Computed example of a mutant assay.
Amino acid sequence: MKINVKAELGIAKSFEVKESNKNIRKTWALQKRMAKTSIDQANEDATPEEFEEMIDGVMELQDTVINYVVEILSLTDAQAEKVEDMSFDDTVALATRISSELLHIEQQPATEEDTGLEV
């Protein structure tokens, strides 16, 4: 499948990403890591030690997200540097888009009902 990242990285060419078991496994690992961090951050009564572990987890997630984008797209060192220069939120959005495309999941914004914020 072809993935275009011109909007995010300014690279005009599309990247060919195989829907291989290896890439799908990396995608599921990313999804699992992102879910774990989300669950860990929900602990509002964290002790100082748990809070420190949570920060370590967020740092690990950041590395995981960056590595996922770089590895899935097989970026060169110069292209990978562009990922390093992105904001974390933009990098997560890019990784989420790539993983959604690989898993053939259509991204849709969550409704208030989906998030439990319905009044």
Rank of each mutant, 00 (worst) to 15 (best):
S87R: 13
D89Y: 06
G57W: 01
M59I: 08
A95E: 03
F51W: 13
T64H: 06
V69M: 05
D85P: 04
L61Y: 01
S74A: 15
Q79N: 04
T76P: 01
L73I: 11
Q79V: 04
S87F: 12
R97F: 02
L103H: 11
T64W: 00
Y68G: 05
E101P: 00
N67R: 10
V83N: 00
E50C: 08
A95Y: 00
S99Y: 00
S100F: 06
I55P: 00
E84F: 14
L103M: 12
E49Y: 06
E52G: 15
N67D: 14
V92G: 02
A78C: 03
M54C: 07
E101Q: 07
V69T: 04
Y68M: 12
P48V: 13
I72Q: 00
M59F: 08
D56H: 08
M86R: 03
V70Y: 09
D90A: 15
G57V: 05
L75D: 04
E81A: 05
T76E: 07
S100E: 06
M59D: 14
L94D: 00
A93I: 10
I66C: 08
V83S: 01
V65H: 00
D63I: 06
E50F: 10
D45A: 12
E71L: 10
L75I: 08
T76R: 10
L102G: 02
K82I: 04
Q79P: 01
M54G: 01
D63V: 09
E50R: 08
V70Q: 11
Q62I: 09
Y68A: 10
I98C: 02
L61C: 05
V92I: 13
E53V: 03
Q62F: 08
